[in-house]
Nucleic acid binder design. Structure first.
Length: 662
RNA sequence: GCCCUCGUGGCUCAGUGGUAGAGCAGCUCAUUCGUAACGAGCAGAUCGUCGGUUCGAUCCCGACCGAGGGCUCCA
């Protein structure tokens, strides 16, 4: 046997020509795949003289993707074992897991998933080897004649997105055979690879759920059945992931909204339309009040506009042309009909507003504007109504009626860069005040296929946005071509307490509306000029931000936002008057304090307050009363006894005014 | 909108082709108790809505309304 020279992990060495990477890395069980000359390859790949080989561990991002993709294959094999009539779609790795799309005779039931999972465990146990086989288009079409979706992929080879690329994205068309103990193929799938050396390299996995999904992501295509799963390098990591999901479920704002009596969605009102209960109302008002105060400091002017308008306004803005299916249908007023039903007098159409901007434009236009007034910043807590598709509604974060903290800034071209810069700083600082601290920014640029406005305007606005973003020293992600047709935008993404990303604020330049409304101001030389218009919302919608904060804090709001800041718990009834007096003093200091005078035992009252996530429990009994003091119990279970009344009040008012979390 | 799952007292859930139970919450009584559920009793549901099948439906079928998980969508 001849030998060849290869470089393994940076070290040049001579090996037998029939040695594979799997042999080279035999002493490191963490290595499940490798890079040969920079390309990700199976550990069974043939080596050639001069190859440069690096091991890739199962825990690396690439290793995880391979693990998950291989697990998807095992799932597809199990599905076809159990349901032989099932045709295969695609099965790529995704964040934290994988999915595979199937076209089964019957949709999968939860019991099916259990069966599939145990069939998978068997396959994993068998240690089937993944073997790569190069084929040709015509051979593959013959071999996979019974797999119509796979044949379709062969037809679009190379042209697909990242997901279809997993199947056919390589330069060669390949099929992976799973070899049983006897070395004979037991199952095959069209796939680019690479894969784990064998199925026994799958340490931990779990099927999560099945769901419908359109073939290749288009709602014009048939609906396939997708099964989601997750796979990890160890059982511990799988458990940690499942715990994270359980934690996310516990802090789901829809669940907390009910448990903490914050809001509800009465069926009688309609899908996606919420009512805020008193406690939710307090949180919301605290949010709004603080936002209003900060906006006033930043020279915003507060305006109001009606919830509905004649069609003409949204015709002028263009919304009816491109957005009517997202709007509630019109109300026709004062229409008169002939006896035969034909129209005698045309009525007037009124629409619920899906946006506030046209109203603000009318305010701008209500009189002649001077350059001396600019930038003019019009702010409104504007409630809008959008007929979202039923399937997209999600608690309070995606609703059909919601209130935007909406402002439109009218300024000169020259003012725009400075305005965007100070605006972004303002936005981020305000979000920080609400307790979010981990951000990145996303800049959406022009889609040349679909946009209005001149090249120069776009370039200038995009550059101003980019400069403003870079000045923040935050990660900036480019969303190439992702802007709306009327102008570029920057959006602020925030991470919450358990690491999930939420899109928060958006700052959007608009080249369209000033033109459609023919907005003008008088410049210093007396000429008429068109202002630049900037749309911006910090919360997106108040309801949505409310939901995000609820999940971020898991319902344990910082004192300044908490519906009830203090609950007084007397050790027994005989101390209720004493403690009631302390609570009254707190109320006079502006603290949202309540006395629990129910006839529950104090332990029960503590439990109730704990479950309501009230920041401060103030307890008083014999000792405290004698000392003219109270005892604290904090949400985390800590205690502080014998605190003089004035000190206690000061501690609480201080926590509220500094907006700290406790 | 599409696919799947679900809809039983305020909440969480059990249950059956012959008109319903539990725990918590509520109310009453008892208790007055130092940091996460004292005890007893009472009350509370035309089993989402409307049709159909059936001698009879909360249970089977259909439509609608609503919820959940996804897909698509979010100007």
């Amino acid at each position: 046997m001849s030998s060849i020279k290869v470089t393994v992990s940076g070290v040049e060495q001579a090996i037998e020509a029939d040695q594979k990477p799997t042999h080279l890395f035999a002493d490191n069980k963490e290595i499940v795949v490798c890079k040969i000359n920079g390309l990700l390859r199976d550990l069974w790949t043939d080596l050639h003289d001069g190859d440069v080989i690096e091991g890739v561990t199962i825990s690396s991002p690439e290793g995880l993707a391979v693990l998950r993709h291989s697990t998807a294959h095992v799932m597809a094999q199990a599905v076809q074992q159990l349901f032989s009539q099932t045709r295969l779609g695609i099965g790529p790795p995704i964040t934290d897991g994988f999915y595979y799309d199937f076209d089964p005779p019957q949709p999968f039931t939860p019991e099916d998933l259990e069966k599939i999972e145990s069939a998978m465990r068997k396959i994993v146990k068998e240690g089937q080897r993944f073997k790569r086989r190069v084929t040709t288009e015509s051979d593959a079409l013959t071999e996979l004649a019974h797999e119509p979706y796979k044949c379709e992929l062969i037809g679009i080879k190379g042209g697909g997105n990242d997901e279809t690329n997993v199947e056919v994205g390589g330069t060669e068309l390949t099929i992976y055979d799973n070899l049983g103990r006897d070395g004979q193929p037991v199952w095959s799938d069209l796939c680019r690879g690479p894969h784990l050396p064998s199925t026994k390299h799958i340490p931990a996995f779990k099927l999560m759920r099945s769901a419908g999904a359109y073939w290749r992501g288009s709602e014009k295509n048939p609906m396939l059945q997708r099964i989601y799963g997750t796979a990890w390098p160890s059982q511990d990591e799988l458990n940690a992931y499942l715990e994270l999901l359980a934690e996310a479920e516990k802090r789901d704002h829809r669940r907390l909204g009910q448990e903490l009596d914050l809001f509800s969605f009465p069926e009688e009102i309609g899908s996606g339309l919420a009512v805020f209960h008193p406690k939710g109302g307090i949180v919301r008002r605290a949010m709004e009040d603080y936002s209003r105060k900060r906006h006033e400091e930043e020279n915003y002017e507060f305006v109001y506009s009606p919830h509905l308008t004649k069609a003409a306004l949204f015709q002028k803005s263009g919304h009816l042309d491109w957005y009517s299916e997202g709007m509630y249908p019109p109300m026709v007023m004062d229409e008169e009909l002939h006896a035969d039903g034909t129209i005698k007098r045309a009525g007037q159409q009124y629409y619920m507003k899906p946006m506030n901007c046209p109203f603000h434009n009318l305010i701008f236009q209500s009189r002649q504007r001077s350059y001396r007034e600019l930038p003019l910043r019009l702010f409104e807590f504007g409630t809008v109504y959008r007929y979202e598709k039923s399937g997209v509604l999600h608690g309070i974060t995606r609703a059909r009626g919601f209130t935007q903290d909406d402002a439109h800034i009218y300024c000169t071209k020259e003012q725009m860069p400075g305005e965007l810069d100070s605006l972004l700083t303002f936005v981020l600082n305000l979000l920080r005040d609400y307790g979010l601290s981990d951000f990145y920014l996303e800049l959406s640029t022009r889609n040349p296929e679909k946009s209005v406005g001149s090249d120069a305007d776009w370039a200038e606005a995009t550059e101003s946005l980019r400069k403003a973003a870079l000045a923040q020293n935050l990660e900036l992600v480019l969303d190439e071509g992702g802007a709306a047709f009327y102008g570029p935008k920057i959006s602020v993404q925030a991470k919450d307490a358990i690491g999930r990303t939420w899109q928060m604020s958006t700052i959007q330049v608009d080249f369209q509306l000033p033109q459609r409304f023919e907005l003008e101001f008088s410049a210093s030389d007396g000429s008429k000029q068109r202002p630049v218009m900037i749309h911006r919302a910090l919360f997106g919608s108040i309801e949505r931000f409310f939901g995000v904060l609820t999940e971020h804090y898991s319902g344990a709001f910082p004192p300044w936002l908490a519906p009830v800041q203090v609950v007084g718990i007397p050790v027994s009834d005989s101390f209720a008057d004493y403690l009631g007096d302390v609570i009254s003093q707190m109320k006079k200091s502006g603290i949202r304090a309540e006395l629990d005078s129910s006839d529950d035992r104090m332990q029960k009252k503590v439990r109730n307050a704990q479950m309501q996530k009230i920041p401060f429990m103030i307890i008083a009994g014999e000792e405290d009363m004698k000392a003219k003091a109270v005892s604290f119990r904090y949400r985390n279970g800590d205690q502080k006894n014998g605190v003089p009344i004035a000190t206690a009040i000061a501690e609480i008012t201080d926590a509220i005014s500094t907006r700290i979390q406790v």
